[in-house]
Amino acid sequence: GTLVVVTVNDRYASVITVRGTSMNPTLESQQGDRALVSRLCLDARYGLSRGDVVVFRSPTEHRSLLVKRLIALPGDWIQVPAAQEIRQIPVGHCWVEGDNPDVSWDSRSYGPIPLGLMQGRVTHIVWPPNRIGPVERKMPEGRVMQR
């Protein structure tokens, strides 16, 4: 998966360095992308949205942070790629996938993950200069039936 290293940490925001290729082309470790992570989404007033790029604790290695795209929220029905299967996301859980599916290890492997693992939302690329800009919300089409 795409690992992240927290380089600056604050209560509301962090800057992370991206390693790994599972979020190519949105986040590219080969170019040394550094991204701004907002934690406001963890407060009840804001919340996460489908299509957000999120940072969360790995469900299988609690010392690691991962960055993926949030695909489905509790109660949604999702079509699992390459599985001919539709699943409903359990209460308190969500479905995450990398933008580069061929190399991403994500909910397609480990299933829905608790929202309690979420650490923040990636809002911008802040380095290198030619990569500076917002990270857009994006959804794969036709795969999620919202609750």
Binding site: A44, H62, R63, P90, V91, G92, H93, P114, L115, G116, M118
Partner: peptide, 19 residues
């Protein structure tokens, strides 16, 4: 330190309600 021991009393986010 990411060290947990058997028998520790721990504080954690509910898996079905992260709040």
């Amino acid at each position: 330190k990411y060290q947990f021991s058997h028998g520790d009393v721990v504080l954690f986010k509910c898996p079905s309600d992260h709040r």
